[in-house]
Amino acid sequence: MKRWLFAPVPRGRVAAFRTLVYLFVVADLTVVTPWVRTHADVPGDLYQPLLVGRLLPLPTPTPLLVHAIFWVLVVVSLAAATGRAPRALGWTVFALYFEWMVIAMSYGKVDHDRFGFLVALAVLPTVGRARHGDATPTEAGGWALRVTQIAVVCTYFLAAFAKLRFGGVDWLWSSVLARAIIRRGTDFADLIAQVPYLLIAAQVGIVAFELLSPLIFVLRGRWRYAGIAFFYAFHLFTYAAITISFAPHLIAMTSFLPLEKVRPIEWLRSRRADRATTAPLSG
């Protein structure tokens, strides 16, 4: 178990994952869920903090608090994406984003697509320095990515557990997807809804997929990448049908991928060098 949890990975993979995660924090605040910032104008009486917000306890959001967290988190996340001061900046991003999520989810709406992403933010500061392109193996980085992977899979498995716990087996034959399509369905969803029993089959397939998701850890090599591709395809289908994106979860799921092989800066440099060598001489 220890060898599995701490299986080393290249430091370059951790560096790429870290940059992607911290840049997404900025994208999340400004593009994906900008509505969180509007809670600055919501009366404090409507704030019903999550359990963790009551235990710590965390302050009731005010305009000053919400706007301060927003701007500090944007600046610190951009700095953390560079890889500098990975522990100090990393812990700061985690603490601020954690509070941001408490503010977001304490008004009656709780999303479960943030679990893996929050775990990633919590474990990345433990790795320390890691440079892009560095092939040196790191057990600390392997542990951080493995824990994130476990959180990603738990998101699926516990979702199935919740469905069966609160809806029972009857959830499989219910009208959950039909109601979702009525509320927020797309033209694509309207097409598939016309096929008899297809929505019921989809609900059975969703629960089966979520219950079997831990098998991704048994797969190796190309089979594992095929499994991850299926995970992404599942979310693409979900978004196409009922416009639920699971964006932070999809970012956390890149912990399964060999991100160190994606070298955009070096690719741009090589492209520039190729253009310089092939450019015709002037004069």
Rank of each mutant, 00 (worst) to 15 (best):
197 Y>C: 01
186 T>I: 05
155 T>D: 02
159 A>L: 04
159 A>F: 03
198 L>N: 01
185 G>Y: 03
186 T>D: 06
158 L>V: 11
158 L>W: 07
164 L>K: 11
198 L>S: 12
197 Y>L: 13
172 L>N: 08
174 S>Q: 07
193 A>S: 15
158 L>H: 06
158 L>F: 14
192 I>Y: 06
175 S>M: 04
185 G>H: 03
162 A>N: 13
169 V>A: 14
197 Y>I: 03
155 T>N: 06
187 D>P: 00
173 W>G: 00
186 T>A: 08
190 D>W: 05
166 F>H: 15
158 L>N: 03
176 V>T: 12
187 D>Q: 14
164 L>E: 08
188 F>S: 12
194 Q>W: 05
163 K>G: 07
195 V>G: 07
170 D>F: 07
185 G>K: 06
189 A>C: 04
157 F>V: 15
182 I>G: 05
161 F>S: 11
179 R>K: 10
166 F>E: 15
166 F>S: 13
194 Q>N: 02
160 A>N: 05
169 V>L: 15
189 A>R: 07
164 L>I: 14
192 I>E: 06
160 A>Q: 08
162 A>M: 11
158 L>R: 03
177 L>I: 01
181 I>S: 02
195 V>I: 15
183 R>L: 10
176 V>R: 09
171 W>N: 10
189 A>S: 14
156 Y>K: 02
170 D>Y: 07
196 P>E: 07
157 F>E: 09
184 R>H: 10
185 G>N: 06
171 W>K: 04
165 R>V: 08
184 R>S: 14
176 V>W: 05
178 A>W: 01
172 L>S: 09
179 R>L: 09
190 D>L: 11
171 W>G: 06
162 A>L: 13
177 L>F: 06
154 C>K: 02
183 R>A: 13
172 L>M: 10
184 R>T: 07
155 T>V: 06
180 A>N: 10
164 L>M: 13
154 C>I: 14
167 G>M: 10
190 D>F: 02
157 F>W: 13
194 Q>R: 13
168 G>A: 11
174 S>L: 07
180 A>G: 01
161 F>R: 13
166 F>K: 11
190 D>S: 09
191 L>A: 15
196 P>Y: 07
183 R>C: 00
186 T>H: 05
194 Q>V: 03
154 C>Y: 09
196 P>K: 08
196 P>Q: 10
168 G>N: 12
155 T>Q: 09
184 R>Y: 01
162 A>C: 04
175 S>L: 08
188 F>M: 13
197 Y>G: 02
157 F>M: 12
